[in-house]
Design a protein around this nucleic acid. Structure first.
Lengths: 343, 343
DNA sequence: TTGAAAGCGTTACCAA
DNA sequence: TTGGTAACGCTTTCAA
């Protein structure tokens, strides 16, 4: 029973040549309707599933795409992005019988090697480039390797097709929200400057602050972790009189905002009475903590879905255009409120 | 330049037959040391990388293994397990040129279909079975599909090789810790009963409580989420006088313990002064929240590493024995303390 | 429309 | 020890 049904068996049963079976089953022309039916029937009777390996060798395709996560396990551990992103990818891959190969490289160099070996043995037909860094070395690499790739939230001048979710709108909404609530002393906790999205969010923030006619305010660099939020809170709040503290802070992701809030409380700043805090991402945890976290909600699932669609198109040799999915929007919850009255 | 170097090129350059190249490069006997050297040299000169597809077809192997996560994206989002688990798997797969195929099925039925299609087109040589349920339908399925599989934290009578990390020791340590601190009113927040590890932890808890000669205490079912912890806190604390509340609670994972602590605070129970809370897992977040979370620390990375090692052995046709890795141990932090004085 | 045969790049078997 | 050759299971080209 361990012997698989092959195209030969189907051909024999239908009484035709294997080339006809191939054509019929792949809906290619050159087969009469009548024989096609007979072949399909035979295939069904036998429970024929074309061998991926045979197809792979012949078609010079891997029928798989790769995602290399180039961060340490802890980040994956607490990062909301990848779970949903991968879920979105699968939605597209599955019906096309493509699979996702996941690799993890903690060291940057190691990561590059993963791409090299994926390419060397033609393990994948294309890759996703997410969490892009400034002057990311993966970009020239995949180009050199001839690997089709899709950028995820890349810069505008990114040299490959990219899917993006706008961050400008949500950040503008948040700053306007702060302004409306009477805040004048703002602060921003960024992500590590080596990630391009950290810089993007920072610029959008500065632009929005300027547009609202508010003072620039402080900017401190965080690291997207809970602990980074804690450290940022220390930097912005510890040892300062209330009048010296910012009254409204945006952290560049939710996890660090939650850390920030926790530490703020310890430092005697009540949220949102003394201090408004907002995050960016829209992770579930933000709806559970108290106060619930105001945030700019992204939709990683859609990002993954679109990225996968684009990647498969690119693999098929189509010219694919950049796609902008619906921008991330402000979701007001209870960590933001009116500016405290000046004393 | 897009034409790959094949075994034929290597054979030509070395002036030998392709079969000799194959033997030489795979360290099989039947090649003189001298020719082997020449072949290796030629391969190196040409930058030969054997084609995975060719090998795959010929060797009837996929050189890939599968992990199907059968939970909804949100869980992956906040679950510490998979990031590290996958990292451990990779450590083993990489040197052997195996890849990990990750699939996500939210619906249980969908999940089973993933296994079916993985098997149908021989996409993987074996799979991991983690997050096992009671009477898990995947077990008979993979058996029927003839897919080598390794159970992760399976029951003792699991019909396939399994890697386990002991939970009994840590739970016993925790209960002893509670007893030593003078706690008499204990409570347990379990995971969903359909997961076998929920039942395992529950039994270990009950046994330990009995062994310490403590009263049984309450048991409520949680769901391994932050919100589940919140709900459990409501169940155990809301509307009760302090004398009716438990003084020491173990939640079956850290995330729910953190939710539990947050809600406990809102309900006027100070942790650890009025109430000791402990979790299970050892996630990073537990070291950041205040108070820092006492927990039973697991090592998913080691679990993944061992599971992968076993799976590859099974794929190679070896008979593999069950493996027990170092048990999870108690890590005392600041969410547990002396029982409050009776009033 | 149908069928035969040549790849695709390995591994494995069997003569030489 | 070597080399030739038949699988492996498909797609694709080219005759019939």
């Amino acid at each position: 029973m361990n012997t698989r049904v092959t195209i030969v068996d189907v051909a024999a049963r239908a009484g035709v040549a294997i080339s006809s079976v191939s054509s019929a089953l792949n809906n290619r022309p050159g087969v009469s309707e009548e024989t096609r039916k007979r072949i399909v029937q035979a295939a069904q009777d036998l429970g024929f599933v074309p061998s991926l390996r045979g197809r792979s060798l012949s078609a010079k395709r891997a029928f798989a795409v790769g995602l290399v996560v180039h961060r340490d396990p802890y980040v994956l551990e607490s990062d909301p992005f990848f779970g949903s992103f991968i879920g979105g990818i699968e939605t597209v891959l599955d019906p096309r019988d493509y699979a996702l190969i996941l690799q993890m490289g903690s060291e940057p160099v190691e990561t590059l090697d993963r791409y090299r070996s994926l390419a060397a043995n033609r393990r994948v037909d294309g890759v996703f480039l997410s969490e892009l860094g400034v002057d990311d070395p993966r970009v020239p690499l995949v180009r050199e390797l001839g690997l089709p790739a899709i950028g995820v939230n890349a810069e505008l001048d990114f040299p490959m097709p990219s899917v993006r979710q706008g961050h400008v709108e949500g950040i503008r909404e948040l700053v306007a929200h702060f302004a409306r609530l009477g805040h004048r002393r703002l602060a921003l906790v960024t992500g590590p400057h080596e990630f391009i999205h950290a810089g993007q969010r920072r610029r959008a923030w500065s632009d929005a602050v300027t547009a609202e006619g508010l003072p620039g305010g402080e900017i401190v660099e965080g690291d997207f972790t809970y602990d980074g939020g804690v450290v940022a809170a220390d930097r912005l709040l510890a040892g300062r009189a209330a009048s010296e503290r910012p009254t409204a802070v945006m952290c560049s992701n939710d996890l660090s905002a939650i850390g920030f809030m926790a530490r703020a409380g310890e430092l005697g700043a009540r949220v949102p009475e003394d201090l408004s805090v907002a995050g960016f991402d829209g992770i579930q945890l933000g709806t559970y903590v108290r106060p619930t976290l105001t945030t700019i909600a992204t939709t990683p699932r859609l990002l993954g879905l679109e990225a996968a669609r684009m990647l498969l198109a690119a693999v098929d040799g189509e010219r694919v255009a950049d796609v902008d999915i619906e921008p991330a929007r402000l979701v007001v919850r209870s960590s933001t409120g009116p500016a405290p009255v000046l004393r």
